[in-house]
Design a protein around this nucleic acid. Structure first.
Lengths: 208, 208
DNA sequence: CGACTATTTGAAGGGACTCAAGGCGTGTGG
DNA sequence: CCACACGCCTTGAGTCCCTTCAAATAGTCG
């Protein structure tokens, strides 16, 4: 099982704030630094040459993104909502590299964590039926978003969810409504979500 | 730009053969070894607990898969058609790790290459319209599959393409037929594909 | 040659997209 | 404090694309 790589960094760096929509780094820029999310949600946005824009992945507290696997960033990173993050310098990357010669799996955990964020979307998009995708999406976020009393802080704009699920905002809205009518989830507020029937949600995610 | 990491291995290991459909490693098994494709195509298959089966990625000559980023393999690897491959041992992985302390980007290239194979699917599935996805798929394979006189050796079962594109085999067949009728591609044989109008294919892939 | 699998084609049905309009929420400025 | 503007969410109607089921054909391997 994958563990969040927070333990990679013994020293506590000062977290920086970012407002919703703010850009953390831009696709095509050299990988000078990578980012660790402390609070809030960030999105990886891919811009094709033809102007196509896709939300490729979402990153939650504890996640790291922009790891210098290649020379340039393959996507832009933007804040989905207000967030706190740490900007790690390349010198820290080299520290990790040299440490990995002794404890090899630390860095690999971090790399794997980033890769996994992208794989999840591929798995979700592979499911047929938008309700199934939405259920899988909620189950994924449920393990990542902060919650109190079983109520998720679901502060994700539906436009972002739509781009992530490769659908339209209208369909996202209708899918959520359907899950509410089925009494599988409840949304006391726009940015609050409570899973009422996890078992039925899982069944729908599996395509039934 | 990403370079195929063949140069990672100075010594030439003896390539092993595998028949179409053969399993190279199984999801859940420990990452004892990883694989380099020399000839043919391999697929990464993810089996969900509910029996859902998805082709997550395709790997072509020069690609490596099953890198021990995590402890266990996250997908099964199977031969799409008859192929030649090299099974690398964990000791080779450790050699790469120690070498990376001096030349860091060699290993990262390999890791990035595997990750990119998965990202491509996510990008393709994010497009709307099956014709657009199919066009993007052909353009992707065109840079990976061997060709002679501009004719691709397109020896991919349509069932695999269907699973990769998250659609049905019938739709795959119909999409290919449509591209043939448009004179954008030609298929002199079932397993041969020639791109007649790359520009129009790119336009369709971009969603027009 | 025969069994089996993969591909092709047709028809019917439903789900998702698009376009359009209205409601809700937030933040800003008077 | 209120009014307004703006963006986001919600809902409806129509259309088209894709899926599903079914059947026929082509290809492959013994």
């Amino acid at each position: 099982m994958y563990h969040h790589p927070e333990a990679l960094f013994q020293d506590r760096m000062i977290a920086m704030p970012a407002r919703a929509g703010e850009t953390l780094f831009i696709q095509g820029d050299p990988c000078d630094e990578f980012i660790e999310i402390r609070r809030g949600v960030a999105r990886a946005v891919n811009h094709s040459r033809d102007g196509n824009r896709q939300v490729m992945a979402l990153f939650f507290p504890g996640d790291m993104l922009g790891l210098p696997l290649a020379r340039d960033h393959r996507y832009s990173a933007e804040a989905v909502n207000d967030l706190l993050y740490v900007r790690h310098s390349p010198s820290r990357w080299h520290t990790l590299l040299s440490r990995m010669c002794r404890e090899e799996n630390r860095l690999l955990d971090a790399v794997w964590g980033e890769e996994q964020s992208f794989l999840v979307r591929s798995l979700i998009l592979g499911r047929t039926g938008m309700l199934s995708r939405m259920a899988a999406f909620i189950l994924m976020t449920a393990g990542k978003l902060p919650q109190s009393d079983g109520v998720l802080q679901f502060a994700l704009p539906q436009t972002d969810i739509a781009s992530y699920l490769a659908t339209s905002p209208e369909t996202v809205c209708r899918s959520l409504r359907q899950l509410r009518e089925y009494r599988i989830i409840a949304m006391p507020r726009r940015d609050r979500l409570k899973i009422l029937a996890p078992d039925r949600l899982a069944i729908i995610a599996e395509g039934a």
